[in-house]
């Protein structure tokens, strides 16, 4: 068992087989630096709980491929990324920090899927981006690549 501590001082015990999916912690264990609690100053307990949920489910990835349980895992992954933008980015930040490759891929793909084919207005609203371009600059950008900004199938809904 490995103990992890979130930045709001909550401790979690995770099986070593699960936690070594994080390259960072794997290296710490190999270097003998994981004997006591590992503090994670960038991750709050809410996010850490999500990450541990993922690690525990993916503990036997190799075995799942052998026994044909990939379907279950796929279903879990789909459910897992069903979260709001801010929560998703918290998990991405945690996965990036802990260096959990598969989780990073899953979450970035989910973010990309949400942005696909969206209108500029919808993307700004979803990501809370404040437009600081002048009208002239905007026009210049559109004139530079008109093909990118036309087409009737742009989706204006926010998700």
């Amino acid at each position: 068992m490995v103990k992890l501590k979130s930045n709001d001082d909550k401790e979690f015990e995770v099986e070593e087989a699960a936690v070594i999916q994080s390259e960072m912690i794997k290296n710490m264990i190999e270097d003998g630096c994981a004997t006591s609690v590992i503090p994670l100053p960038n991750i709050d307990s809410k996010t850490l709980i999500k990450v541990i949920e993922y690690l525990n489910k993916h503990i036997n990835m190799g075995k799942a491929a052998e026994t044909g349980e990939e379907d279950d895992l796929k279903e879990f992954d789909e459910q897992f990324v069903n979260m709001g933008w801010e929560e998703l980015f918290d998990v991405i930040m945690a996965a990036n920090y802990l260096n959990i490759h598969e989780l990073m891929e899953l979450c970035c793909q989910s973010a990309a899927d949400r942005l696909k084919n969206k209108s500029v207005r919808a993307v700004r609203e979803m990501l809370k981006i404040t437009n600081d371009l002048t009208e002239e600059e905007e026009q210049e950008i559109i004139n530079d690549a008109p093909w990118a900004f036309e087409g009737p199938e742009i989706d204006d809904t926010v998700n």
């Binding site: 990073m104 970035c108 973010a111 990309a112 969206k118």
Partner: peptide, 22 residues
């Protein structure tokens, strides 16, 4: 991380991000 996300969207959507902000 931003690059990682943008590399997963189709080219048109990636180009469209140029108009989001400076």
């Amino acid at each position: 991380v931003i690059d990682d996300i943008l590399m997963r969207v189709p080219f048109r959507d990636a180009v469209c991000t140029s108009i989001l902000s400076k």
